[in-house]
């Protein structure tokens, strides 16, 4: 077994286990920490696939910025206790069964896709910053700039939503 294959299995196991822990841990803070671990595992997969730029972005944006934001909100609302009320057992069972059957059905649908092979090592350089940046700032410059407008509006939206309403009484 090649080293990359070993790494693949380790990362896969880590990702799935952490994801299960995200869903099952009672404390929201623990969930966030497990989720960071999932993202790290996914970053590892990106590196294995030689998608270096995405690996870095995933690390910085997801595992860094977004998860810190989650943590911040949880801390802010003081939710880091284990007292979350649970849904009824039957409902949770139905949820697990339907999730499992979704997985089953999707696997059944996609399992015949086996003809193609995915190389782990660095042939080609599409995942490198040079290639991606080149394409992004030539062909995709307009969507790129538009995404800045999206950010601006998201920012404005967040400020408007998060602002304490002074004039109108809270609902």
């Amino acid at each position: 077994m090649h080293i990359t294959e070993i790494l693949f299995w380790i990362l896969t196991a880590l990702a799935l286990f952490s994801a299960l822990m995200v869903v099952s841990s009672d404390n929201p803070v623990h969930s966030v920490l497990w989720l960071i671990l999932v993202f790290m595992a996914i970053t590892g997969h990106y590196i294995l696939m030689n998608a270096q730029f995405l690996a870095i972005v995933n690390m910085i944006v997801y595992a860094g910025a977004i998860m810190v934001l989650f943590l911040f909100v949880i801390m802010f609302m003081n939710l880091n206790k284990d007292s979350e009320p649970q849904k009824s057992v039957w409902l949770r069972l139905a949820a697990v069964v339907s999730g499992g059957s979704l997985l089953l059905i999707l696997v059944a649908a996609l399992k015949d896709n086996g003809g193609y092979i995915n190389s782990m090592k660095g042939e080609g350089s599409i995942g490198l910053i040079k290639n991606l940046g080149n394409t992004l700032f030539t062909e995709y410059v307009v969507p790129f700039e538009i995404s800045s407008i999206l950010f601006l509006s998201a920012m404005v939206g967040a400020v408007v939503l998060g602002k304490k309403e002074s004039s109108t009484p809270a609902a």
Partner: peptide
Amino acid sequence: MTVSIILFFI
């Protein structure tokens, strides 16, 4: 919604 999606796939 999930159940419906599953049914669609089936």
